[in-house]
């Protein structure tokens, strides 16, 4: 038995005992799995293309110097505007969709291919599996938002330059500070989407159909947006997962207003905690018959 001999030599007599090593192999393997999937690569390319398209459209339709509102003209001195425009448009549907697909695939996808039973008999450990799956989706979310911001930024700066940024309060910010504000907005948006990842992970433990999980998650988000549009339901709004997603706009005030964003972080934290606990409760007691 050559395999046994090799391993015995390498590990000495300890290869039968499980090691208590805290490694990153599983997480790295998970990220590799996400990154190597064609579907994910294609989705990332589309998401990254959107701010580029926006930048080109803005550049093509910008008023000639001297005509048009001066404020609008001034806004176009700073390329970071395309980052914000891109993120704000994609946050409506594309980014939640991408995160829903990734999170919905996390457990249901493994159940669907049957690999879930083989992961668990390795043994992966159900809690560890959940943690790694969540970690993988969070990293992918961060990368996705980062790539969208980066392509938007590069394209915007190429077309509009690095002039001062006009704030919503009418003041201007130097490029460096504007960059800091945009970075904060990116982090805030990622954290809002992490809540989507956590709820999506829970939905993913309920089914063996990854598409079903993603669709259910997306319907939940759209319903939340619809309910958020009814002013009669304003008592309900703070409890909607999407309610504070646009609060990052307050970063464009001078000085920036943080109260809504803090509430938004609280909301995202609560939704994340709920999603992860529910996913944990479900997966650790589930009969794996797939």
């Amino acid at each position: 038995m050559s395999a046994a001999d090799t391993v015995s030599t390498v590990d000495g007599g300890a290869d039968w005992a499980p090691r208590r090593r805290v490694g990153t192999r599983f997480l790295r393997s998970e990220m590799g799995l996400i990154a190597r999937r064609r579907r994910n690569q294609a989705a990332l390319a589309v998401l990254a293309a959107i701010p580029i398209i926006i930048a080109i459209v803005i550049a093509a339709t910008r008023p000639a110097p001297g005509s048009g509102p001066p404020l609008f003209a001034a806004m176009l001195d700073n390329g970071l505007i395309t980052v914000l425009a891109g993120l704000s448009i994609e946050l409506g549907l594309f980014l939640p969709l991408a995160v829903s697909v990734l999170a919905g695939d996390a457990i249901a996808g493994e159940a669907n291919t049957g690999t879930l039973r083989y992961l668990l008999t390795v043994p992966a450990g159900r809690v560890r599996l959940l943690a790694v799956k969540f970690g993988g989706v969070v990293v992918a979310t961060f990368v996705t938002v980062g790539v969208v911001a980066l392509t938007g930024g590069i394209m915007g700066i190429a077309l509009f330059g690095t002039g001062d940024m006009v704030t919503l309060s009418g003041t201007t910010l130097p490029f460096g500070e504007a960059l800091g504000r945009v970075a904060l907005a990116v982090v805030y948006i990622v954290l809002c989407l992490v809540a989507v990842a956590a709820i999506g992970l829970f939905v993913s433990t309920l089914t063996e159909q990854p598409i079903g999980a993603a669709v259910a998650m997306l319907m939940f988000i759209i319903l939340s947006q619809i309910l958020g549009a009814f002013s009669d339901l304003d008592w309900l709004h703070p409890f909607l997962i999407t309610n504070y997603w646009s609060a990052w706009g307050d970063l464009l005030r001078d000085p920036p207003a943080y109260d809504q964003m803090l509430l938004g972080l609280l909301s995202a934290g609560a939704w994340t905690a709920f999603g992860l606990s529910a996913a944990w409760a479900r997966l650790t007691t589930k009969d794996i018959t797939s």
Binding site: V7, V10, D11, D15, A17, P18, R19, R20, R21, G23, R25, F26, R28, S29, L33, R36, R37, R38, T113, G114, T115, R117, Y118, L119, T121, V122, A124
Partner: peptide, 29 residues
């Protein structure tokens, strides 16, 4: 258990590598 199950778009080797990455008891080297 109940037939083979692997990721269809990965090669045989990559599928085994994936399984081994999950196993805390094996030596990555």
């Amino acid at each position: 258990v109940e037939g083979p199950a692997f990721h269809p778009y990965l090669s045989g080797v990559d599928n085994l590598r994936r399984l081994d990455a999950v196993d805390r008891s094996t030596d990555p080297a």
